[in-house]
Amino acid sequence: MVKAKHLIVAGVVLIAGIIAVFTFFQSEEAKVKKQFEFIAEKIEKEPNENSIIAAAKANRITELIIEPFKIIAPAYSLSRDISSGELSTFVLLKRSQYAEIFFEFYDFSIEFPEKDTARVNLTASMEGKLNPGEFVQDFHEMRCKLQKMEDTWRLKEIEIVEVLRK
């Protein structure tokens, strides 16, 4: 007869095995999603964030892009390459306008058209409190192109989809 002790040990080993599989053998989709979670985390802002943390966060975001990094926003007639320096300044400037930011990505649709290239369609959601205290929320559908470099998925292009065209 199998002792209860053995069953418990088998259960623990099984759970540890499942965790190990998920940790060490992540699918490429999971890795891409994780990068977006990381970006969202760096965009988010807690009240009274100091300037050193703000600069570090902006810097971490720019580490996740590949230059030339292209941004396309038809609603603003914008389509151009931006450098990591420009992006860092833009992120710092935008984040400084808010006292608090909640940021999340939803509804991922991920394709791998060729090796080390991913195309992601998703919804970005931002809720923030402006420095005067006004509450702001914004949603955008985005099409992103990512490339895998040194086992890390990095952003190559972002297009803000115009869902409602004025």
Binding site: Y106, D107, H140
Partner: peptide, 8 residues
Amino acid sequence: LAGEKVIL
């Protein structure tokens, strides 16, 4: 939008 998590 991209899915149905956020709708207008």
